[in-house]
Amino acid sequence: PPQTPIRAAMTSIQQLRGELISTGDQPSTNLDKYFKNCTVDPTQDVLKRLETLEQTFSQRFGQAVGPRCVILGKQRFTLGVRLYYKVMEEMLKSEEKRLSVQNFSKLLNDSTFHTSLMACALEVVMATYGESSFKTGGYNPGGDDPAEADVCFPWILDVFRLSAFDFYKVIESFIKAEPTLSKDIVKHLETCENLIMERIAWRTGSPLFELLKQEHEGGAAEQVETPAMCY
């Protein structure tokens, strides 16, 4: 039978759900080991943060899609959490191999890291359901059809008050850690990257300007200290 857009979307959804069936709603034994290896165990903060993010996300999803869709938002979030845990574990495994380190306390106690990773997982889930795409993306507040509602990127950044700059940091590692992502989803994440690079990261208030200023000042200070070096 011909691969219609609806059938393609259904296939992607079934593939995503199939991938995440074995991943529970809680950290796996391996991931728990990484948490326990930390100087400061991040487990309680991770669970509390997820509760808060779920509340925020499902409320905002209901506002964008329709009041009866708050439950849909919770379902998306549940899938997102499984993907978040799965990808985090894979990221830590490859960092452990790369750095020969098992204590990731600083990273796993960084709220921005977790929020960015969770936002990316939700972006993948919504893109799979066709809710976040760069084709339709029409602004339709209150409309009950999720596919038409404005939950398209960068909506998720506003929901979690996340800077595009920080969200950008997890994208490549996310794709590397989850090789089963479909071609369309990888392309979607790459479009998010391009949008950030070309526009969003340069908006007023972006942390990028402060970082560039620090970098510039740091560079200028070096030049003053060692003028002879520059010859």
Binding site: M91, S94, E95, R98, L99, V101, F104, K106, L107, D110, T112, F113, K169, V170, E172, S173, I175, K176, P179, L181, S182, K183, D184, V186, K187, L189, E190
Partner: peptide, 21 residues
């Protein structure tokens, strides 16, 4: 899969991006 361009070098990873190296 879509030929995504991986830009991180071998000595770069999520730890460096979040200043946790």
């Amino acid at each position: 899969s879509h030929n995504y361009h991986f830009g991180l070098e071998d000595h770069e990873g999520i730890s460096e991006l979040f200043d946790c190296d």
